[in-house]
Design a protein around this nucleic acid. Structure first.
Ligand SMILES: [Zn+2]
Ligand SMILES: [Zn+2]
Ligand SMILES: [Zn+2]
Ligand SMILES: [Zn+2]
Lengths: 130, 130
DNA sequence: AGTAAATTGTTATAATATAACACTATGTAA
DNA sequence: TTACATAGTGTTATATTATAACAATTTACT
């Protein structure tokens, strides 16, 4: 499984902080929190983020410019992602639904074209916020 | 139909340029192109964009930070959007599929929660780029 | 050891987006 | 008509997000 590939020092530092966070983290929040570990510049963060996204260990929540660790072993290396986002408390949850992924993976547009890669973000209110 | 609501001067200027564009436009590209019409500051553009998104005349392509006019009369005021994006030529097309919207509008997560609002972006290669 | 590929460190800068405040236009209702 | 509320505008400054460019270092593989 590709996700167990070794991470470099910076990648590990960045990944750890994202994985421990209960909420999506923004790049500069991460930067602020890892400066004591010797990571000083935005680029060091962004490069690690890019790589972590590429190998599917984290995902970018596009509508929030924030990053969340993948907790879904069936994620096909960041190629097919779905999230629910609470518009009040900003809680983000990765959706892992076989039905949904199957439906989207098989979806064909008007020209009969299929897309293997997608990102879906649902918005609403979480249980607590209703 | 909400979409026919009157636009203000700035909103009209911004909308016109987006509607005429064959490709999604970025905020500062828009700014550059409307400076001859008296719009001088980013905020004037962003405020118009916000409003136009809110009333569903345009959509934001989150993964590209760009804006496209809505050509889909069934769009429920920007609440449920789907796009296909070519990763080579960056062509973006709004998907209007009754089946897809129905599936997503009725989708329930593990907690039985339904979401009335979503944004879906498919990635792949368009016909020309394959 | 030799070499290519990936990663790092660093400085500077580009691109995207919002805060704050004073002012103006528009619609609605007394 | 005047008063009021709401939405939109113009402006300056600033915040936030992300990348360019280049030299140095590490890593994996022959
Ligand atoms: Zn995942
Ligand atoms: Zn919530
Ligand atoms: Zn639309
Ligand atoms: Zn293409």
């Amino acid at each position: 499984m590709q996700k167990q590939q070794l991470l470099t020092k910076n990648q590990k530092i960045i990944f750890d902080i994202i994985e421990k966070s209960p909420e999506p983290l923004k790049a500069y929040t991460i930067l602020f929190n890892v400066q004591k570990k010797g990571i000083k510049a935005p680029l060091q963060v962004y490069r690690a983020l890019d790589k972590l996204v590429e190998i599917g260990k984290i995902h970018k929540i596009e509508s929030r410019n924030a990053f969340i660790a993948c907790h879904n072993s069936s994620c096909q290396v960041a190629k097919a992602t779905a999230f629910s986002i609470c518009e009040i408390c900003e809680k983000v949850t990765e959706i892992s639904s076989a039905g949904l992924s199957k439906y989207l993976a098989n979806f064909k547009d008007k020209d009969g074209m299929k897309y293997s890669k997608y990102n879906l973000e649902f918005f609403g209110l979480c249980k607590k916020c209703r």
